[in-house]
Design a protein around this nucleic acid. Structure first.
Lengths: 338, 338
DNA sequence: CTGAAAGCGCTTACAG
DNA sequence: CTGAAAGCGCTTACAG
């Protein structure tokens, strides 16, 4: 069977307390004893049980990561950053893809509670606000990617408002006036902020964003594509489009292609997120970059701050968004609408 | 503090053994007692400690997933399938992105051993064969995506050889004769199999794959792109290209664009994996699909077979690959080389 | 149908 | 510098 601390203690002719001390580099142990014990651990292939350690020390060195879907490139990149930052401090991460379904969120929450994870990063949306309150009262939590107005929680978000402004400025600079927006559910705070920044910037330039040009869709690529095909059939086709994530932009790109509308000459598209997808399409997508790595890293840092230093001042970190110009945007053609 | 089994036992006026039995639906407990105890658990918000349970029952209900990079769409999709299948049976999964570096593999392996995970799915490559042997002798393991000749381990792989054949057949049908291959490291068994299937199929049609047309590259998109730009500069430019993964194909697509070679009219590209990327590029990629969901699911099933039923006949599951025709391939133009 | 007791593999005061 | 002992929160024979 697997060697235990008793086995190495016996071999070394010392107490388990002593072995425990050398493992954890605590107390004062003579150098020779220490080395002797290390040698024995090696020989027995001893791996201290993190389970037993957790039971006594109340730390599992495990984090939970709740996101809508790990197969979504945006969250996969964030997850990678979370993993790396956590690993750096000795933490493992359990992934929980919720599909934004309350039922899945709840099940995962219970699993994470039972496994006694040291903290949870929440990047998923859910309707049940009570759930969040419950969580946050029972263990360290940080929310990423959206605001939680109702509650004091640590959060790290990209500057969505600024992102919306940047997108608008870019399109304005290119001379666009007839502009549409393809958004995810406006129930999500980040979408609302992007829209607000976008609309206000247009407003400052004397343009109004028509309600009929705000298209909301829920199911990603396919749905976005269908909605855009409809839009392109309309009378007053816009010369530019602001999509709230890369997947939606891909849908729009495909819709444009099927409608024989050339991008960017006849239609400019600005996307959001700047995942791998944005650089892979053709034309590649001008996109508002969210710093996904920093999002993950900062989330871990905030969490560890709560876990190890007991920080309870709930911080809020706002990360800068940035315009990445690629090939999907161009100056408006005077002939493009007609 | 958090309620324990003692708290609910005290409240219910029974022993902890009884509470344990109702939690685990073991033994015979009168229905009223059971309900009474459930009510108390609810009231105390009692969540049994999976840590304590694991210490006594020797099961953590946690799986390790070792992959090169969770941010890589292929592995992200596999991970999602692993997560879902595991969750279905009450297992959580810890992600471990190794970047194929032995040092990272080793560190993660130790973490997983210490955390006493019930099993590990290995989708990462590494040079140190001893490591695998060590692992496999100490806990249940299944390897995905590649063959391990040196060792008896459970494996689940896609039919790479068949995939290579399918790619070749498709290009032959379209009349291509001058064909190149863009491959990952040929140290990976799956790459070798793809190449073998491809080459043999060409051979049966009387064509030989020139060594100079087998381009091997290591760093994904950018490297692939650079290597293709070189290739396209050569005298005898191929009319078709078989790329061993979607990322490489994207690189090739970009290289073609920069070299003003039109795809598919002047160059056909067949890709491998059929991740999200294949459907998102323009033109979209004809690709050999690996069943990523099944890969993940079967891996979990094999693992649970070992864990719960003690299966030690190391199974090998071979999954079918499939040709998905999109827009990146077309019949050869007689004028394309010249 | 129910409970007393040992044990899982550690850590942590406390005493020496 | 080192060790005895209690305790973390469960499960599992075993006895009744």
């Amino acid at each position: 069977m697997k060697a235990t601390i008793y086995d190495v203690a016996r071999e070394a002719g010392v107490s388990i307390a002593t072995v425990s001390k050398v493992i954890n580099a605590k107390g004062k142990i003579s150098a020779e004893r220490r080395n002797q014990i290390f040698a024995i651990m090696q020989r027995l292939q001893y791996q201290p049980s993190a389970i037993a350690t957790a039971l006594t020390s109340k730390q599992t060195y495990t984090l939970g990561l709740l996101i809508p879907d790990i197969a979504n490139p945006f969250f996969a990149e964030v997850a990678r950053a979370v993993e790396d930052r956590g690993h750096q401090f000795g933490y493992s991460v359990i992934i929980c893809s919720t599909d934004n379904k309350d039922e899945r969120v709840e099940r995962y929450m219970n699993v994470l509670k039972q496994k006694r994870v040291d903290g949870i990063i929440i990047g998923t949306g859910f309707d049940n606000q009570t759930m969040l309150e419950d969580m946050s009262s029972s263990l360290p939590i940080v929310v990423i990617g959206r605001e939680v107005s109702s509650l004091q929680v640590a959060t790290v978000v990209a500057d969505d408002y600024m992102g919306g402004c940047l997108a608008a400025e870019h399109l304005l600079t290119l001379g666009h006036k007839q502009i549409a927006v393809l958004t995810e559910s406006l129930l999500i705070s980040s979408s609302r902020e992007r829209l607000r920044g976008f609309r206000e910037t247009l407003g400052r330039a004397g343009l109004t964003l028509l309600e009929s040009n705000i298209v909301s869709c829920r199911n990603g690529l396919e749905d976005g594509k269908a909605r855009m095909i409809e839009l392109f059939r309309g009378e007053e086709r816009p010369s530019a489009l602001f999509c709230f994530n890369d997947l939606l932009a891909v849908g729009a790109l495909q819709a444009a292609k099927e409608s024989s509308i050339e991008v960017p000459s006849a239609l400019s598209i600005v996307s959001f997120d700047n995942t791998l997808l944005a650089s892979v399409t053709s034309p590649s997508l001008t996109s508002i970059a969210q710093p996904m790595d920093q999002l993950g890293e900062s989330a871990v840092d905030l969490l560890l701050g709560q876990i190890t230093h007991g920080h309870d001042a709930k911080q809020r970190i706002l990360l800068r968004t940035e315009l990445i110009v690629r090939q999907s945007t161009a100056a408006v053609q005077s002939t493009s609408t007609l």
